[in-house]
Design a protein around this nucleic acid. Structure first.
Length: 602
RNA sequence: GCGGUUGUAGCUCAGCUGGUUAGAGCGUCGGAUUGUGGCUCCGAAGGUCGGUGGUUCGAACCCACCCAACCGUACCA
């Protein structure tokens, strides 16, 4: 039988677990400052409580791990933390304060094909507000998400929280005649296509909206069979997110403006309502632009939503200083304000009332972001964001990392979203007769940890190893244990109420086969021990112990060549007084080594 | 699910147009050294060559099917 971990699952060692603990503590800290409190639900739920399932099927819902209980009810491992929360809230509705703010971290399970960085068990860390109907709750969630990113040490500008609203997307779909139950399938196809813009480009999206697309591996994906006009409409909407398109259009405009650029660009930089009118006149009179081009100009220079930079670039705190520094010739100078983004969409799509409610909600959120001082560096309203195809009903958001992530092989991997969320007003009410609004988000802890490792923001420093009491004389184990106890107590002090002070300092007696003394030092070395205690017959007779500083010994050994000399030197050792009644000298010697930087005591 | 690539020791990989007993480095373990880590030297263990079937006097190598992993793609509540 070969020992092997199940496919898609991973074992995790001490350093990973410590790093994760540290991460969770930082996230928890942010959530607590927003007034959220913890709750835990089990990893199993009844399958029908999880939301999507196939009724009357022998095998519940592909994609989830399920077992049949002995009462013939199907149970499944949870695949996210949102559906279980909805169940919990519905079940405890009377006793919970509303709005109910809660957070919880836990493993979730997906029975799917694992991929790079994608596992079948992974940790999520969610926060939700249940019973708050207003978009101000959604805005708060987005702001908390930004705070969480920064709380984890991700610098501003290396992440962005992108925000959209399902109702806007629904409006787009309605505008191209995809409303109603009978078009549910095509709606999904269209949304999926829109979501792939940054990966497969405008042309790829057009294909997916039309007849379909064959990718480079030869696999064909069926399209949504939209007409050219409908495709054009979706493209117009979605291209807001295309940086390439933005640059191309700006270049075309600059070219078209000719001499007029000199007067126009400064005007655009000092954007205001008044300046806009002035700019329009200037554009018409001096740069000979037509109305359509002027619209484009304003669109691109003052209102464009695609304000996040290319992956890998680092933004300073302030939006404007970034663009001034980055585009000194002003060609790509863009003024980005979330409220203006929404204004632009309202203007462009004013003919479609179905989109207005979503845009109104986005406008309200944009004002909250701006009043609270959360600029587009942190939270960016981008109506092309597609997320949460199933249960989201209003605002949606996702956290995206903007820096390069390299894997173990040194390859740059596309990372994208590390968390997301939105409003799910229908989820709790599945269990109840009354409607219960809710909003929340989820952080993919495992994925984020991989990314943070790359940023160097993960606490991966090795902890101090144990002080090892070696065994020279097998018959004196009791003496060695006593030494270890004395050291352990002295090095792990407690305050008057019995609470430990400071980080634990491990102390242990060597418990392997003591026959070969060299093995004991090898063990101590491998454990990253700062020092070892040695007491053989000689030391015992003299009332002494050897305290050996392993790091110092290693340094000293650099000059030693021959093995005999190396062994003879006993580098880094100090002979100190020791009797069971008087261990103070030994304790002091160990303390001194722990205090040395090389002793790992810092 | 679809397409491609790859499967030889714990790890990284050699292995010639098919040829007899399948190798190396690293790692592991033991010894040189019954009281001292590193270096050095010596030695050992470790393989159904992914599996099954076929072609052949003979298969790690050729063929078929299967399995798995990786990459892309699709799905991802």
């Amino acid at each position: 039988m070969t020992a092997r971990v199940p496919r898609g699952f991973v074992d995790r060692d001490a350093s990973e677990l410590r790093a994760q603990d540290a991460m969770l503590a930082k996230i928890r800290r942010v959530y607590e400052t927003y007034g959220f409190e913890p709750v835990e639900t089990p990893v199993f739920e009844y399958t029908d409580a999880l939301g999507k399932f196939l009724p009357d099927s022998d095998r519940p819902n592909e994609g989830v791990f399920s077992i049949e209980d002995d009462d013939e009810q199907w149970m499944s491992l949870r695949y996210d933390l949102t559906a279980p929360l909805a169940r919990y809230v519905a079940e405890n509705f009377e006793t919970l304060p509303k709005p109910y703010r809660s957070y919880r971290a836990g493993y979730v399970f997906r029975n799917e094909k694992p991929g790079p960085g994608r596992f079948r068990q992974f940790m999520q860390f969610d926060a939700d507000i249940v019973g708050a109907p207003n978009v101000s709750a959604d805005a708060e969630m987005a702001m908390m998400m930004a705070d969480t990113m920064e709380g984890l040490g991700i610098p501003r500008g290396q992440y962005v929280i992108r925000v959209n609203n399902r109702k806007v997307l629904d409006g787009v779909l309605e505008a191209i005649g995809l409303g109603g139950e009978e078009n549910a399938g095509r709606r999904l196809t269209v949304l999926r296509a829109m979501d792939k813009l940054d990966r497969i480009g405008v042309e790829g999206v057009r294909q997916l909206l039309g007849k379909g697309r064959t990718d480079e591996s030869g696999d064909f994906t069926a399209g949504a069979s939209l007409s050219d006009d409908e495709i054009g409409f979706v493209q117009q909407f979605v291209e807001a997110g295309s940086e390439e398109d933005r640059k191309r259009k700006i270049q075309t405009l600059i070219h078209a403006m000719g001499q007029g650029a000199d007067v126009l660009v400064p005007l655009m930089r000092a954007w205001s309502e008044k300046a806009q009118a002035e700019a329009e006149n200037t554009a018409r009179a001096k740069a000979n632009l037509d109305d359509a081009q002027i619209t484009d100009l304003l669109y691109l220079f003052t209102l464009h939503p695609a304000g996040y930079q290319s992956v890998g670039e680092t933004l300073p705190v302030d939006d404007n200083s970034y663009f001034e520094a980055h585009f000194p010739d002003n060609i790509y100078y863009l003024k980005i304000l979330n409220t203006k983004t929404v204004d632009l969409y309202r203007h462009h799509f004013s003919k479609y009332p179905s989109m207005q409610e979503g845009l109104n909600e986005l406008a309200a959120m944009a004002r909250m972001f701006e009043e609270a001082g959360y600029g587009t560096q942190r939270i960016l309203i981008d109506p092309s964001v597609v997320r949460g195809l199933e249960y989201y009903t209003g605002p949606v958001f996702e956290a995206e990392l903007l820096f390069d992530v390299t894997n173990e092989k040194g390859e740059v991997v596309r990372f994208g979203s590390v968390g997301g969320g939105g409003r799910y007003d229908g989820l709790v009410s599945r269990f109840m007769s009354q409607p219960v609004p809710a909003t929340g988000f989820s952080i993919g802890v495992s994925r984020l940890m991989t990314a943070l490792k790359n940023l160097g923001r993960l606490e991966t420093e090795r902890r101090i190893g144990p002080v090892v009491v070696t065994v020279m004389d097998r018959d004196r184990m009791a003496d060695y244990q006593a030494m270890a106890t004395q050291l352990r107590n002295a090095l792990n002090p407690k305050d008057e109420s019995g609470e430990p002070l400071g980080a634990p300092v491990p102390v242990e007696v060597f418990q392997g086969n003591p026959k070969q003394f060299g093995k004991q030092l090898q063990y101590a070395d491998r454990r990253n021990a700062p020092c070892v205690i040695i007491q053989g017959a000689d030391e015992k007779a003299a009332g002494k112990v050897q305290v050996k500083d392993l790091a110092l010994g290693k340094e000293l050994s650099a000059q030693i060549e021959g093995n005999a000399e190396w062994r003879e030197a006993r580098a880094g050792q100090e002979l100190v007084d020791y009797t069971p009644e008087n261990p103070e000298a030994m304790i002091a010697a160990v303390r001194a080594i722990l205090a040395r930087p090389s002793g790992g005591g810092a």
